[in-house]
């Protein structure tokens, strides 16, 4: 569903993404982890069509984003980390506008919009202006829009930012149901518990390069081996992540405090 091959992004002499390759299959939830500034958001923005890669190839549902951008984007749903939307539209109008951009038939849009708003618990806000929404509500509205046109693949940048526990639970359920229906989900996150709980496979990016990939268990085992520990207790994902990406920094925190 989503396939990226040797993706590179350079800003002058600085290489933000350095030869990243990744495949997210049908129905798979793929976690994309890495410390701040590792290249996660840059990669996600390139797949969404917001940034032009320096080199490399991106395929969405078999369509090359560089050669057939409209066909590739039509199969994709994008949920950015910050939910900027038109403040002077109502939630319902925003969804209808979004559906229009994806060429959805007018007759089908009304029912689908109501269905999505109900799913994301925004039904009673359908006729309210977006400017009166909280951050979490805007985030849920963006998610409603991303699923509106029944995409084959979904790209999510930090899905849990600004969501309350109920909202977070709702999103996890929706993502699981979508993956069961065959939707491929590539999810960048800092919340390792979410990744551990939801992802079928995880890729870890550091300094623009993928340094590890596998299931949670595979990553834990990899980290265990990398640290040179004696066989036995494999670390939790958080510990594995910190080991793989270069240490926890806890010692420095102690010294400062």
């Amino acid at each position: 569903m989503i396939s990226i091959q040797n993706l590179v992004k350079r800003y002058g002499t600085f290489t933000a993404v350095d030869g990243v390759s990744l495949d997210v299959g049908e129905g798979e939830i793929h976690g994309f982890l890495g410390p701040n500034g590792a290249g996660k958001t840059t990669t996600i923005r390139m797949i969404a069509g917001l940034l032009k890669p320096t080199s490399g190839r991106i395929l969405v549902n078999g369509h090359d984003l560089g050669a057939e951008p409209e066909a590739a984007k039509a199969s994709l749903g994008f949920i950015p980390d910050r939910p900027f939307i038109y403040e002077k539209l109502t939630a319902g109008e925003f969804l209808r506008f979004h559906a229009g951009l994806y060429g959805m038939d007018d007759a089908a849009v009304g029912a689908r919009a109501t269905e999505m708003l109900e799913l994301f618990e925004l039904g009673r806000w359908e006729h309210e202006l977006v400017e009166s929404f909280s951050h979490g509500m805007k985030q849920r509205l963006v998610m409603s829009a991303a699923f509106m046109h029944r995409p084959r693949a979904v790209l999510v940048d930090e899905p849990m930012v600004g969501l309350d526990p109920r909202g977070a639970r709702l999103i996890k359920d929706v993502f699981r149901r979508m993956s069961e229906r065959g939707v491929a989900i590539l999810m960048s996150t800092h919340t390792l518990e979410v990744a551990e709980e939801m992802c079928d496979r995880i890729s870890i990016i550091l300094k623009g390069q993928i340094i590890a990939r596998g299931t949670v268990d595979e990553l834990r085992a990899l980290a265990h081996g990398a640290s040179g520990a004696v066989a036995g207790n494999a670390p939790q994902l958080t510990e594995a992540f910190l080991r793989l990406t270069g240490g926890s920094g806890l010692q420095e925190i102690d010294e400062v405090l």
């Binding site: 969404a48 069509g49 409209e70 994008f78 900027f84 951009l101």
Partner: peptide, 14 residues
């Protein structure tokens, strides 16, 4: 379009 320009740029329209 401001910060909401991502909506247009990620949509399948030229």
């Amino acid at each position: 379009e401001g910060a909401a320009f991502w909506i247009i740029r990620t949509a399948p329209i030229p």
